[in-house]
Design a protein around this nucleic acid. Structure first.
Lengths: 196, 196, 196, 196
DNA sequence: GATGAATGAGCTTTCATTCAT
DNA sequence: AATGAATGAAAGCTCATTCAT
């Protein structure tokens, strides 16, 4: 009971911080900003997260798991690689539309402030939730003869970079069309890039 | 004469700032850090760049032009789209190896600190040097019937995101092989994604 | 019965606080630190001591009495001043060895944080347990014609300062020999300083 | 010229900090307190001392040298150990009267906040200016056959502890007479303690 | 052009104390 | 008696920028 309550509060804090970090950047967001947003005192926030860096790290883990969970559902479907790619792209862009903070957080905070993640998120342990599912998707496609067998990171970089890049362009306001209208093209491009 | 001297000094400052920003991040690099690195006084640095933000903006413009220049040379060659892609990927990764600050700057500074570039680099004007050349490459390929005709940003996001993503993975130290060994695979993937 | 239990708990708290204050200093020791050390809640601790300052004051009183008690035993012996001095010095250094927190507390907490003891320990009321016994020893020696008759504080400063100083030097790690090897010299010095 | 000015300012800061630390204690004195006292900005103070701890350390070095210098003059006189002791005690108490911060600083800051001096003042390097002169006085007296040959620290602890203890008692307001009236007694006591 | 001392708002973090449960 | 989440003032320190020289 107690534990649940504490966990709930941690999530409240993470959600608030996630949004502020995503919108204003990590360094421009202050702890008081976060505390104020959820009507909590600064001191109390430190009862839940021992530092700003730790907070950022726990957010990326959490976010990565949420995103991974969604992709997991796709992996479990009995459909071809082509359809899977389409679904993953759709999920990604839908998330970027409905919870833009989440995707923005990857770009603006995790990707950019490596010092913050240096101690505690070495390698890519804090985003393993997301990576693992992409890896499963890829290995699956390869073993079924649908995708060309190549170094995983060549494929992963394509996914992560391409989708991230599109969201970045959206954020910059340079995309002439709504991001959802790019889904078909992008899914197609990725499929053709990876298929045997 | 005077002007040239002034320009030279500006470049010295930009190069020093570029390296520091790329390695330590924008917010962790101080103006005194930059001044010290080149044996110049803080006050004098302000005679060349009126603010830290302006400095960051001029660097991205400069960098984007240097990179664009290199791609321009590829565009002027009389070779097919497939070869061009291979050359562009090679250029990108070579730059990432020889002048990693340059590529890192895109990822760690430009991509991440939008507030800094909000006033002065709206849209993507500060990276037009680079974008323009990618655009020329793409339009050329399309008009020659080598590349499929699609929204430019679908193609641009692929290029920029994919290559940027790979350099990021390199920076994280998770790539099992040297980045240059990925060139063939990646060039192939991009070509298959874009070709008709 | 109730009272005894309460007293016992107060002593537990005081002992824990004494050690922490002595080792880490008054300002570097937090109330949560003390509470944690004895598995008690912060709030409950305040049921026993109404403030951190009050706690520090009660500790010095307690410690002073324990030390005074030991000296009292010496005072009750039927031996000369010279022997008594030797015994007191021995007691002091033995305590410094076996319960270093106790002596350290005098030096690091009581002597140093006067603001803490300003309200409640004016003059030297909180250390009267110790002072009184030194005073008895001194008056006794004078009245028996063994010690020179001089202002008590000249003698007390010698005792307290000299012994405290030696423990400080021990704490600094600058003493070439074990502190117990200094007993003879120091007892001798004090005796010669005070005798008629 | 520049250097002199900078040195002068450093001394101004140290003097102000010395007084505040001595009166209010190290932890109760804030950097803004010090800055305000001399009409300087907080930020600028950090141009002279990189941290509060460093400031405290430089003060103790400085103070120790000033005090050592005074004792040096006594050491150079052609007088007996008895007179020298009297002069040293006099100097100490005069300093305690005219510049009480200086002596108080030893007691309240240096002696008490070991953490502050842990890195940079190991052993007693930061007070060597003072110790060295006491050592010279002692060795001199021994070699001239005036003082008993014993471990230096037995003698040094007597000096430092006794004098420090008296100043502490003065500070506590428990001394019935003015501190200067204790000089003869104390000098006598020390002499008898140390003589052959 | 060049210097670097000076400014001061702003940051992250700490901690004695309270109080609803 | 006991808990520990909550408070919020305050601390040490940083750094972009200015300006007298």
């Amino acid at each position: 009971m107690r534990k649940e309550k504490k966990l709930l509060k941690k999530e409240t804090i993470m959600q608030a911080a996630l949004e502020l970090f995503a919108i204003n950047g990590f360094h421009r967001t202050t702890i008081p900003d976060i505390a104020t947003k959820i009507g909590m005192s600064v001191g109390n926030l430190y009862n839940y997260f021992s530092s700003k860096d730790i907070l950022a790290q726990e957010i990326i883990k959490y976010t990565s798991e949420v995103l991974g969970e969604k992709i997991k559902e796709v992996n479990q479907l009995d459909i071809g690689a082509k359809e899977k790619i389409h679904k993953i792209v759709t999920i990604y862009f839908e998330t970027a539309k409905e919870q833009p903070e989440m995707i923005e957080y990857f770009l603006r905070v995790y990707l950019s402030n490596r010092e913050v993640f240096a101690d505690g998120c070495e390698g890519m342990v804090c985003v393993s939730g997301f990576i693992t599912e992409i890896m499963i998707f890829f290995d699956d496609g390869v073993s079924k003869g649908e995708l060309r067998n190549q170094d995983f990171f060549s494929a992963f970089g394509l996914f992560m970079g391409y989708l991230g890049g599109m969201v970045f362009l959206k954020g910059e306001g340079v995309l002439p069309k709504d991001i959802s209208e790019y889904i078909d093209d992008i899914a197609r491009n990725i499929y053709y890039a990876l298929k045997v």
